[in-house]
Amino acid sequence: MKELVINKRQLAWSRLAPRVLAACLSCLIVLHAVPAVAEDREASQILIKNVRVFDGKEARLSSATDVWIVGNKIERISTTAARSADASAEVVDGAGRVLMPGLIESHAHLTWAATPLADLQNSLAGYEQVIATAEARNMLMRGVTSVRDMGGPVFGLKRAIDEGIVPGPRIYPSGAFVSQTSGHGDFRQQNDLHAQFGGQRFAMERKGHTLIVDGVPLVHAAVRENLRHGATQI
Results as ranks from 00 to 15, higher is better:
residue 103 L to Q: 11
residue 93 D to S: 08
residue 44 S to H: 13
residue 11 L to G: 02
residue 43 A to K: 05
residue 87 A to Y: 00
residue 23 A to L: 12
residue 118 A to P: 07
residue 74 I to H: 00
residue 8 K to A: 03
residue 76 R to S: 06
residue 37 V to W: 02
residue 6 I to L: 07
residue 12 A to F: 10
residue 32 H to K: 13
residue 9 R to P: 01
residue 28 L to N: 13
residue 79 T to H: 05
residue 87 A to W: 00
residue 21 L to G: 07
residue 86 D to L: 11
residue 94 G to I: 13
residue 49 K to H: 03
residue 71 G to R: 02
residue 38 A to E: 06
residue 125 A to T: 10
residue 113 A to S: 15
residue 19 R to F: 01
residue 67 V to H: 03
residue 74 I to A: 04
residue 109 H to K: 12
residue 8 K to M: 02
residue 78 S to V: 09
residue 44 S to Y: 07
residue 67 V to G: 07
residue 84 S to P: 00
residue 99 L to W: 08
residue 84 S to E: 00
residue 119 D to W: 08
residue 50 N to D: 14
residue 14 S to K: 09
residue 89 A to P: 04
residue 91 V to N: 01
residue 123 S to V: 02
residue 23 A to T: 11
residue 123 S to R: 01
residue 34 V to R: 01
residue 101 P to A: 15
residue 120 L to T: 15
residue 96 G to N: 08
residue 70 V to W: 05
residue 83 R to N: 10
residue 110 L to E: 07
residue 9 R to S: 10
residue 105 E to R: 15
residue 54 F to I: 11
residue 13 W to V: 09
residue 68 W to G: 04
residue 19 R to Y: 03
residue 121 Q to Y: 01
residue 33 A to F: 02
residue 126 G to R: 07
residue 32 H to C: 14
residue 96 G to M: 09
residue 28 L to I: 09
residue 82 A to S: 11
residue 41 R to M: 11
residue 88 S to R: 14
residue 40 D to N: 12
residue 37 V to Y: 01
residue 89 A to F: 05
residue 27 C to A: 15
residue 35 P to S: 05
residue 59 A to D: 12
residue 38 A to S: 10
residue 48 I to A: 06
residue 41 R to S: 12
residue 65 T to F: 07
residue 50 N to H: 12
residue 114 A to T: 14
residue 67 V to R: 02
residue 114 A to N: 13
residue 88 S to I: 15
